[in-house]
Design a protein around this nucleic acid. Structure first.
Lengths: 281, 281
DNA sequence: CTGTATCCCCATGGATACTG
DNA sequence: CAGTATCCATGGGGATACAG
């Protein structure tokens, strides 16, 4: 009875329509790992989801028979969400998906971390660059440490990050990965204070998608380059940023800017020499 | 190197982000079943997708490494799309998903077919009632025959359906399933011509979501009822539709309306009797 | 034939404030 | 605590017209 092929397609599309919502897989994962949870329990495990959207996601999961909702106490209302058997069986489906993904993609997709107080900004970056890159978001010191690992290619960060007064992002990231490239987001005018920052590039907020994308791309290209080249590139970036944001008069009077240029000159010789050697070899 | 747990999650989400687009699974399925295809080949197999969206879907699939794009001839431009190895391996992932879906959902979800020339209307119905029901869309005679099978619970149709001049939808559907309920969509005023139509209910376009939903729901409840009850219900629906759309004066003069009422009266006796019997048993 | 370019609708989901 | 209610920005995707 009925079209076998069509039935299987229906089942496939129905399953995908459940898992296609933005937060449903994360919720299922959270319940699978942390056991039964209350509403806000889920909300803290699944970071970033708003209460409204979490409600909606849970509704669709309950309707789909993946999650069970039990009222524990009324007044104050307390609810517990748990996976049903069907929900637990989803784990093997997730493994299928993750296996395929692990085998066929992600091998050379760079991992970016965006660290900024404003979650709208980090969300924007995610929409912009996913799925070209894997984008992780961090909104304070803790989340940053959580997000950065040895595979992180680029960290784009605003220095004003909440968490224990002042957060020294470059030092923090450097403690985990040496190679990771650092792009500073600056809200204020760019000035000579930039020279204190230990970063590979600077972007001024608000930034256009194309501009940020270009900066990230060149940082990815330069990932893994030798320390000398890296310093050279970083200094050049800073010089350019200063040249286009600070008046020539001020720069001319600055000893630090003069030092910067001198250092670049000195490195340039090695740089040229190295390039020439590469070219001939 | 790197956070194992996070890597697997990334792989999972990355895979889902590919399959979450509306048409990508259908395209992969089409290529898996029909072999390598040209652009319009895909567009005809995957019915309902516009060229723009198909282009976008193919782009994401190519970027994901699921589909390979080969230019066969330039001028006139001819292109061939084929699954890569990764694409073929997706079939087992689809099986996972379909298996889970087959086991845990879809067992009692009614199947609705919406047949109307205007794809916006059918799309609207799909958005309205999916995933409460499985909604299939048909825009001409061929697609209708394709969509209807023995599991179809309700067909909502506009009689003006393209394909070989006049399409007699009730006869067409009746050739496949007897039990399937028929809801007619009428653009024009409802008049005594309604009595020529062999349908279980009528809805006037444009119709609100709630109204249509209610009609479909009662049709689903009545699915499988005995022929006598079905005729009785159908006649009652028609009488109501006429009573609220045609002036009492016109109805009073119509022999056919009188016949309708008489027939209802006659059936009502059996109906009452049957109900009473059920109630006492 | 194989797409772009445009315009437009509306569903998704985020932010915020409020209720029982 | 566990949601509603409301408003709003964004983007996916559809229709149509057009280009190479």
């Amino acid at each position: 009875m009925g079209d076998e092929r069509g039935d299987r397609e229906d089942a496939l599309f129905a399953t995908l329509s459940i898992l296609s919502k933005k937060w449903t897989p994360a919720v299922v994962l959270a319940l699978a790992e942390e056991g039964p949870l209350g509403f806000s329990g889920i909300q803290s495990v699944v970071s970033g989801v708003s209460s409204k959207v979490l409600t909606q996601s849970l509704e669709t999961l309950v309707e789909a028979g993946v999650v069970e909702r039990t009222v524990v106490t009324e007044s104050p209302l307390r609810v517990e969400y748990a996976l049903t058997d069907a929900g637990y069986e989803l784990e093997s489906v997730f493994e299928c998906l993750a296996d395929w993904g692990g085998r066929h993609l992600g091998q050379d997709v760079p991992v970016i971390v965006v660290a900024d107080e404003d979650s709208r900004l980090t969300g924007l970056f995610q929409r912009w660059f996913e799925p070209t890159y894997v984008v992780h978001r961090a909104h304070d010191r803790t989340e940053l440490l959580d997000a950065v690992d040895r595979d992180t290619t680029v960290v784009v960060y605003d220095a004003h990050l909440p968490g224990s007064e002042h957060v020294d992002v470059p030092a923090l990231v450097g403690g985990v990965t040496e190679a990771c490239r650092l792009v500073a987001l600056r809200t204020e005018r760019i000035d000579l204070g930039l020279l204190d920052r230990d970063c590979d590039a600077v972007v001024r907020k608000p930034a256009a998608k194309e501009a940020v994308g270009a900066v990230i791309e060149t940082q990815i290209e330069r990932y893994g380059e030798p320390a000398v080249e890296r310093e050279y590139h970083a200094l050049c970036e800073k010089r350019e940023a200063l040249a286009s944001n600070v008046s020539a008069a001020v720069l001319a009077e600055s000893d630090r800017y003069a030092d910067l240029c001198a250092r670049i000159e000195a490195l340039a010789a090695d740089h040229e020499g190295a390039n020439a050697g590469d070219g001939e070899a």
